[in-house]
Computed example of a mutant assay.
Amino acid sequence: MEYVGIVLISHSSKIVEGLKELIQQVITDVPIEIAGGTDQNEIGTSIEKIISAIDAADQGKGVTVFYDLGSAKMNAEMAIEMVDGNVRVVEAPLIEGAYVAAVESNMGKNLTEVCEAVEKEF
């Protein structure tokens, strides 16, 4: 079965590593990819990491993107312009939003349904 993928973006690689681990304790089939920190593994974000995460998370049903701070959103939007596929930045808290998205995706919902469920919650 294909699922809507999830990309977690944070200025800290540790934050998204921990969040991915937390979600995968409950949801194991949904593709969750992370883009944390800069290319030099410092605090910040990387368009290249975001693009790679989007590509890896995309199983053909689209990808949701969650971020921690404003500049991460800006880089996510630039990365989305550079990839093929159906990708949406979701306006929701990083932890809670990504968790709800994983649950909804795991139920086989499409990208629009996953995004609507998350946005309705928050």
Rank of each mutant, 00 (worst) to 15 (best):
V26W: 10
E113D: 15
T64H: 05
L8W: 01
M107D: 06
K14Q: 15
I23S: 05
D39V: 04
I47K: 13
E119N: 04
I27Y: 00
P93N: 10
S10K: 02
Y99V: 06
I34P: 06
E48Q: 15
I95T: 12
K49T: 01
N41P: 11
V90P: 07
D58R: 02
V7Y: 08
T45P: 10
Y67N: 02
N86T: 04
V7K: 05
E96S: 13
P31T: 12
I80A: 03
T38D: 04
E48M: 11
Y99F: 14
M107H: 14
G97F: 00
V16M: 14
T28P: 12
A92T: 00
G36W: 08
I51C: 00
E77N: 09
N110Q: 07
Q24E: 11
A76F: 00
E113C: 15
M82Q: 09
I6S: 02
V89K: 05
I34M: 09
I15D: 03
E91R: 00
E91K: 00
A35F: 08
E48I: 10
N106L: 03
Y99P: 02
V118D: 00
V90K: 01
Q24R: 13
N75L: 12
Q25E: 14
I9A: 10
V89F: 09
K73C: 07
N106D: 08
Y99C: 10
A101Q: 01
I23A: 06
I51D: 04
S105L: 09
L111F: 07
V7H: 04
E42C: 13
P31G: 07
E119F: 03
L19F: 08
P93G: 09
N41H: 07
M74C: 06
S13V: 08
L8D: 01
